[in-house]
Amino acid sequence: MGHRIAVTINGQRYEAEVEPRLLLVHFIREVAGLTGTHIGCDTTSCGACTVILNGKPIKSCTMFAVQADGCEIRTVEGLAQNGELHPIQKAFWECHGLQCGYCTPGMLMAGVALLERNPNPTEEEVRRAISGNLCRCTGYQNIVKSILRAAEMMREGAGVASGSPVGSGSPAQ
């Protein structure tokens, strides 16, 4: 009883025959092989599985893959372009917005979606925008700081010029 679906993830088309009960997050992780999107609960509570679907951040554990047939999806793997980190990735790195890294992809996607809708958010707006994403390590303070810093970088367009290449351990700030 498979359904043939086609989903575009980070600009690449993935076609597969899937069981209707396959969750979108499992499609992304196991059919497309993009394991940056994580799973942390069964109740739509934690947001580790957050991806951007047709421009809006959603929890990919609470959607069946068949429902996403024909949709455009963006995941953490699609943020960096040509080896250059997205400003939000740079900002999380610079502001220590991550520790164990498990919530990070979801936080990044929720953050990116916010900044695309609202390029100049207040701290309170950032906190509200990531309130569907749980983090157990950071206490959120540096995540909020990172998203505000990313907003600044994106506004300045400085994200392109001042970025550090992947892999450098140079001092922050």
């Binding site: 739509t44 947001g47 957050t50 679907l53 809006k56 951040p57 959603i58 929890k59 609470t62 959607m63 929720a110 509200r128 925008a129 309130s131 569907g132 994403n133």
Partner: peptide, 8 residues
């Protein structure tokens, strides 16, 4: 709910 749930 939360902002992500509200999108669906």
């Amino acid at each position: 709910a939360d902002p992500l749930v509200r999108n669906l």
